[in-house]
Design a protein around this nucleic acid. Structure first.
Length: 1150
RNA sequence: GCCCAUGUGGCGGAAUUGGUAGACGCAGCAGACUCAAAAUCUGCCAUUCGCAAGGGUGUGAAGGUUCGAUUCCUUUCGUGGGCACCA
């Protein structure tokens, strides 16, 4: 490189950037004798807006740490890539018609050029993009692993589903043998006798990636499904249209199975406390008991979940969720009407209503539960504050201990039992666990904390309940009705999800021309009929003359307008099933065929993707017989899903057990008749169902093989991307086991807190699954997590005079907005000078536009301003560049008139989120152009701790830039225009010229020590200030010695790589400073023999005394008491005590 | 409402284990160099009393522990974030 006199970063930085590129300085090998270190940034979503100064904060921190580790002798992996699937690109496509692939490509190019400008040490050969088929091939592949795995509850880990099938086939699912489905048992024979759909249903309920009906946010006006963050306060973010919950078939990840391991894993990782806390809260583990209460005059029992069984004697009422099944069973005849009315009311309430007004509502059911311990009768209520989805959907209410229960009791005048004596004041509930129990039977006199265990034991002993752990976390929704995401490698046939073979991956995202939603809320892919049901998707299904067959069978469906028939394959199934009927089925079939009902029933008839037991098409009534329906919650779930789906197409579904059919025949027929009458009237109303399923779709099962049309969510790719960097080009596997064993966990992960519960939990879960399946060797992805804070924008404001409003007459208003008169901040805002200002300002305005204002009457008018954001880039500090302002926004303010203060236009200042719409974004590339990447990097670090949020202030960057120039001058004599270190030193001297003095060496080694410590603990801001102190001190000593400065350059390399590399080469070194060795400090040089001790009298600092460090207490006391100032404060008295802490301080207590 | 952070000059922040509060930088003020500007350099810069020497006060507020508290404890207020009828 040429010798340069001045610090010319504009020349140096591009030169070194291209030199590094040419030599492959940042290429990383998977094969190295050095210890490995993996530093990872949360990869960005490549938005169209490009980077602003807030984004690179974490990248700079990780870059510094990577370079530091490299100098320390590690083989460092520090990759970068793009999370390039996602909604914004799709929205943009909707608006402009540009394909997301095109815009994404463009945005990534912008991002990369910005990142390169800042001089990061990425190995771009390892770049990953989640939207690249070569990448998402493996996202799909891992999805299939999840699909083909289940969580074994005994081994607490994922196992291949094939093992579960084998178990079912050989042992069935019986209690205490193998893998019973909770609450549902079947023998091997039963399993083997199940029809395929039923088997698949059961398997689906165990798969780690599974599909079921779930609620989505449905916006009728936009005819689309919305993501949670597109819904704000119950209306769509765009357009403000109402959003309702709608059931649709959705994919989920069974993350709840991993709840405990996700909690336990937190103990082994180095995340901040708040981050761990957030994850714990999200998982929401609570330990308590399920407890059964008998219902008076009834055989039914009400099961509640409670974390406080110790309060059992304080139960004054029960509350059941309005949706609870038991509600209809237990309500008394007198209360029936009121209950129905209340249930209807709750149904009518949307989430918006519930959030907007949290009022206390409820209804007495007329039923009483019996307290199992004292036999007390407890009224059973229903209320919307009890959620059907949590616990058992019912609670025991203890008003003296629970705020909500208390308010409820108060509102409905339910008497309150006090079991905590003086801890309860009758004014509000007290949830303490510290009280001694009273009025509590066998628990009397116990501390509540201790009583919990006693109560649970008793409950278990009596067999009326048992310990139970609940989680707040739900399974993670994994499908999105969107285009720009990974397609699911799934084909639906006859209601069964069939995975693609691994060889068929990647299933590439097809090209679409329209990005609008598909029919019925499905994603845009549903519009591509050729893609969703191409002939290649037959999957071995026999081709039949499906069309004519379906047409013929559909005749009877005339009264069910929106009904579609099944596929030929289904008819085959159905035919088969008609031969394998049970006794109960046969019995009912005989009854239904008899003319008792006067309608025609069919049996084993395919409807959509189901084959129903009995159906009357004319009245849209389905009757199903099941061995033990609703006996278990699992079974209940299948049945409900099935019923729900059939309901959606307009059918009413009734279910009976074998026993009911066989033993209670009359009742069954009566019930069928009853519903039959109702359903007839429904059909006549013509609004049955909808035409959602009138096209080939996974929901309908029509056709012989239909692709899943939803796509995976944004977090799919990001759940495993850190593995792909290790082996980015492998086409045989997602990541070779050798590579993942070598790089192992991410040692340092840097990113924002916004991903605390999303991305971080999902990627932790995926890692655990991959670990369980033996595909990787560790089950936590990130060893240490560092959260970077947000950089806030510092907005600037100008104040435009909009109007004058008469103080005497409101309607007398003079509009002035069109003149674009801008008034400097302090003139507009100083309330005390308002009167003075008015005339003054009016005069100033009249100077510009003569005669605009009438000075004589100006005092009678109030000024009204509007506050406008102005682009911070045309403001110097707080002073507006008025010429730039006139040009801003294509000359919108070309005619602007400025009313200045002291010749300047001063802007208002406020800290806000950094965002384009506030015009407060600062482009890092601009700063790199003006000050250089090294200055920019160091300034971002100097701003404050990485973890902290802080406002951006461009002004301060000057200080860091001055520091680098000052450093430069240690190397170059600007007077002579030459490097200080030349000519070469004589052989007798140490390399690089003069021998460094002790003082110089002390400065250097102190710096080495501090930089190492600060870098290790990610205290980059103090490291920068250490560099400044070092350079200030060396400059003061006029130290230009190679011996000292060369070491300093190595220290500086992670922070300011360009200038370090340049000066390193100027000093005549061969090779790159990137490969230098981090110097070790010599403690011997830092040893001091004396110290300036601070001497306090009664804790207040009074003087300093320099003392030798090896002095003992006694000697010190003597010297201190001799001291003039100490004597003055003693005023002749003897000190009570002298505290001496070696190398710290002295305190004289009087 | 609950949980977690956090509060220090005009501003960003420092003080690593309870031991000299305000490092480093920005802004500001005064000066040197210069015809001038830029650049650079020097000095001042928490607040208050004082000519000074020196003293008082001071880390959101109020208490406490301690020889000594920005740091630990209790109460309380403000700010930021997360969760939000989860029994």
């Amino acid at each position: 490189m040429d010798q340069t006199m001045e610090y010319d970063f504009r020349k140096i930085e591009p030169q070194w950037q291209s030199a590094w590129k040419k030599t492959g300085a940042y290429k990383v090998s998977n094969d190295s004798a050095k210890p490995k270190y993996y530093v990872l940034d949360m990869f960005p979503y490549p938005s169209g807006a490009g980077l602003h100064v807030g984004h690179p904060l974490g990248y700079i921190a990780s870059d510094i740490y990577s370079r530091y580790k490299r100098l320390k002798g590690f083989n460092v992996l520090h990759p970068m890539g793009f999370d390039s699937f996602g909604l914004p690109a799709e929205q943009y496509a909707l608006e402009t018609g540009q394909h997301p692939a095109t815009t994404t490509e463009k945005n990534i190019a912008t991002f990369k050029s910005q990142l390169d400008k800042i001089g990061f040490c990425y190995d771009w050969d390892r770049e990953v993009r989640t939207s690249d088929p070569k990448f998402y091939k493996w996202t799909q592949w891992i999805f299939l692993q999840l699909f083909n795995s289940y969580f074994c509850n005994t081994e607490k880990k994922a196992l291949p589903i094939s093992l579960l099938i084998k178990k079912y086939e050989t042992k069935g699912a019986m209690p205490n043998t193998g893998e019973p489905i909770p609450g549902k048992h079947f023998t091997a024979d039963e399993w083997n006798g199940y029809r395929k759909q039923k088997q698949e249903e059961i398997l689906m309920s165990r798969r780690l990636a599974f599909s079921k009906y779930g609620e989505v946010n449905w916006c009728e006006a936009l005819a689309t499904v919305l993501a949670n963050d597109e819904v704000v306060n119950g209306v769509s973010e765009r357009g403000g249209h109402p959003v309702v919950k709608k059931k649709m078939r959705q994919w989920y990840l069974r993350i709840t199975s991993y709840a405990d391991r996700l909690l336990e894993g937190l103990e082994t990782v180095d995340f901040s406390d708040s981050m761990k806390e957030m994850q714990r809260n999200w998982i929401g583990k609570s330990e308590g008991a399920n407890l059964k209460f008998k219902i008076q005059k009834s055989k039914t029992e009400l099961e509640v979940y409670t974390t406080r069984p110790d309060t059992i004697f304080g139960v004054d009422f029960m509350v059941v969720a309005p949706e609870h099944d038991l509600v209809n069973k237990i309500r008394s005849t007198e209360q029936a009407a009121a209950v129905d009315e209340y249930v209807a009311y709750v149904k009518s309430r949307s989430d918006v209503d519930r959030m907007a007004e949290k009022k206390i509502t409820g209804c007495f059911t007329g039923a009483y539960a019996i307290n199992p311990f004292d036999g007390k009768e407890i009224p059973v209520w229903i209320s919307e504050y009890v959620l059907a989805g949590y616990g058992t959907g019912a609670i025991m209410a203890v008003p003296c201990g629970d705020e909500r229960d208390f308010k409820f009791a108060q509102h409905f005048n339910i008497p309150i039992t006090n079991i905590i004596g003086s801890h309860f004041n009758g004014e509000e509930a007290n949830p303490t666990k510290e009280a001694i129990l009273e009025n509590s039977g066998f628990l009397n006199g116990l501390l509540m904390k201790d009583a919990i265990g006693v109560a649970v034991n008793k409950i278990e002993e009596l067999g009326i309940g048992k310990r139970k752990v609940n989680y707040r976390m739900r399974d993670a929704g994994f499908s999105r009705q969107r285009y720009w995401g990974e397609p699911f490698p799934i084909v639906w046939s006859d209601g069964i999800a069939i995975p693609l073979d691994a060889e068929e991956l990647p299933l590439e995202l097809p090209h679409v021309d329209k990005y609008g939603p598909g029919p019925g809320g499905e994603g845009p892919l549903a519009n591509l009929k050729d893609w969703t049901s191409s002939p290649s998707l037959l999957h071995g299904v026999e081709k039949g003359d499906g069309k004519t067959f379906a047409k013929k069978e559909a005749k009877g469906a005339a009264l069910v307008p929106k009904y579609k028939t099944g596929t030929p394959l289904q008819y085959e199934f159905a035919k088969q099933m008609r031969k394998e009927y049970t006794e109960a089925e046969n019995h009912l079939w005989q009854l239904l065929r008899s003319n008792q009902l006067d309608v025609k029933f069919r049996r084993q008839h395919p409807i959509e993707s189901y084959i129903v037991d009995f159906v009357c098409l004319q009245s849209a009534l389905i009757v199903e017989v099941d061995g033990g329906y609703h006996e278990s919650s699992e079974q209940k779930m299948y049945d409900e899903e099935r019923s729900r789906a059939l309901n959606e197409i307009g059918f009413t579904v009734m279910r009976f057990t074998n026993n009911e059919v066989l033993q209670n025949t009359d009742e069954v027929i009566r019930k069928i008749k009853e519903v039959f009458v109702k359903s007839e009237s429904l059909v006549n109303k013509e609004d049955v169902g909808s035409n959602e399923f009138s096209h080939p779709s996974p929901q309908s099962g029509e056709g012989q093989g239909v692709r899943e049309t939803s796509t995976m969510p944004g977090y799919a790719g990001s759940s495993w991307y850190f593995l792909r960097y290790m082996d980015p080009h492998n086409n045989q596997t997602f990541c070779d086991r050798n590579a993942s064993d070598y790089w192992n966990q991410v040692d340092l992960y840097i990113g924002g807190t916004e991903h605390a519960v999303g991305h971080l939990l999902y990627s932790r879960m995926w890692t655990k699954v991959l670990f369980d399946l033996g595909l990787i060797g560790y089950d936590e992805p990130f060893k240490k997590l560092l959260n970077q804070g947000m950089i806030q924008g510092s907005s600037r404001f100008v104040y435009r005079l909009e109007s004058l409003i008469s103080n005497l007459n409101d309607s007398d208003k003079i509009s002035l907005g069109q003149y674009n008169i801008f008034i400097s901040h302090n003139l507009h805002s100083d309330p005390n000078l308002k009167n003075v200002n008015r005339t003054e300002i009016a005069n100033l305005i009249n100077n510009q536009i003569p005669g605009l204002l009438n000075i004589a009457t100006i005092e009678d008018y109030a000024f009204s301003f509007s506050t406008l954001h102005v682009d911070v880039n045309i403001v110097d500090g707080i002073e507006l560049n008025t010429n730039e302002f006139k040009k801003w926004k294509n000359g919108e303010y070309l005619n602007a008139i400025f009313i200045l203060e002291n010749g300047k236009y001063i802007c208002g200042v406020e800290t806000e989120k950094m965002s384009k719409r506030y015009f407060n974004t600062v482009d890092p590339v601009d700063l790199c152009n003006d000050y250089g990447a090294d200055t920019f990097r160091m300034y971002e670090m100097f701003l404050g701790p990485v973890e902290a949020s802080k406002p951006w202030d461009t002004k301060g960057i000057e200080g860091v830039h001055r520091f680098l120039r000052k450093l430069w001058r240690l190397f170059f004599d600007e007077q002579k225009g030459a490097i200080w270190m030349t000519p070469a030193p004589s052989p007798s001297e140490r390399e690089g010229g003069e021998v460094a003095t002790d003082a110089e060496l002390k400065i250097l080694h102190r710096t080495i020590k501090k930089i190492e410590e600060d870098t290790e603990r990610f205290s980059f801001n103090t490291a920068v200030s250490t560099f400044m102190i070092c350079v200030n001190e060396l400059a003061e000593l006029k130290c230009h010695k190679k011996e000292v400065l060369e070491k300093l350059l190595i220290l500086l390399t992670p922070y300011a790589p360009h200038i370090s590399e340049e000066l390193w080469s100027q000093l005549g070194n061969e090779g790159s400073v990137l490969d230098a060795t981090f110097p070790t400090y010599n403690p011997a040089l830092l040893v001091e023999s004396t110290k300036e001790y601070p001497v306090s009298i009664n804790g207040k600092l009074r003087t300093n005394i320099e003392l030798a460090l090896d002095l003992e207490q006694k000697q010190v006391e003597e010297i201190v008491l001799q001291n003039e100032i100490v004597q003055k404060w003693l005023e002749g008295r003897a000190p009570k005590k002298i505290i001496f802490v070696k190398n710290k301080m002295i305190n004289v207590v009087i």
